[in-house]
Nucleic acid binder design. Sequence first.
DNA 1: TTGGGTACTTACCAAAAGGTGCATACTTGT
DNA 2: ACAAGTATGCACCTTTTGGTAAGTACCCAA
Lengths: 148, 148
Amino acid sequence: MSSDRSDLISAPAQAQADVQRCTPNLPGFTCGLDATLRVVSGKWKPLILYFVAQDGPTRYGELRRAIRDVSDKVLIQQLKELEADGLVKRTDYKEVPPRVDYSLTPLGQSLAEALVPLCTWGTEHMAEVSRVFAERATWTRPGRQPTG
Amino acid sequence: MSSDRSDLISAPAQAQADVQRCTPNLPGFTCGLDATLRVVSGKWKPLILYFVAQDGPTRYGELRRAIRDVSDKVLIQQLKELEADGLVKRTDYKEVPPRVDYSLTPLGQSLAEALVPLCTWGTEHMAEVSRVFAERATWTRPGRQPTG
DNA sequence: TTGGGTACTTACCAAAAGGTGCATACTTGT
DNA sequence: ACAAGTATGCACCTTTTGGTAAGTACCCAA
């Protein structure tokens, strides 16, 4: 009846032990994962981290063209947030046709590294994921499965 | 001038090599990370994956109470999506006061494992992240730094 | 002078995501 | 009989997020 389930369960195995480390109950975040996701969530942020991690200091225009489909407003916005979050560093060369570039801070680099397993997971299971997404496209949004 | 930057850069170091593996240009996703994030993004999804990974088969009500602050509508919704995406398995015992529980599929378990580095990152850098978020709360939303 | 490129900003909008509250169908406890 | 618990569904609304289009200040090439 009580909401604390102090009983341990028969979960996966080692996976469980690993996940355990993501201990909840912390400052403003429920857990480390929560903190991380708040910082990387944004439609283009991972991609930005991506390109900058690969290309090193990248000019605004380069990012803009590279990411394609992103609008100025949003790209700038996300860059500002990443900067505010201490993940990227903005360098303004104060030149007269403006010149600015963005690079990863050490914090940003460490995040980029932490993202690698997710990239890998996504890559490895891309087939399954996209298959599922294809089906999902059928019922566009809510909960209408082709089950019945 | 051309939008393809075939030139390689002087980026971080090993981090770069690692991130390289997140090769873009794939089916519907820009890269593995993209695929992954589409599947885990949802305000409570990581937390759900969390609890279920730790506790094994978890009843709806348990999750509801454990996650706290989530509404029925959204929790159900996210569970459905996770199920549709093949990450969790819903088991309906067809009993009369309804009994249902959710567990991770192998796919879900592998994702949970891939999330571990992010948890770790978040935990390790929580201080920096929350400090930044605290300041951000000052200018509530747009781009007004206390710089000037 | 017109046009293009640089790096943004701003006002206005549409869509997505999340939240609230009520309803259901049935059982158990009081 | 009535409240409470079980796992949802549904209508409606607010917040968040992303997008569009236009503007700014300045330079260079045609």
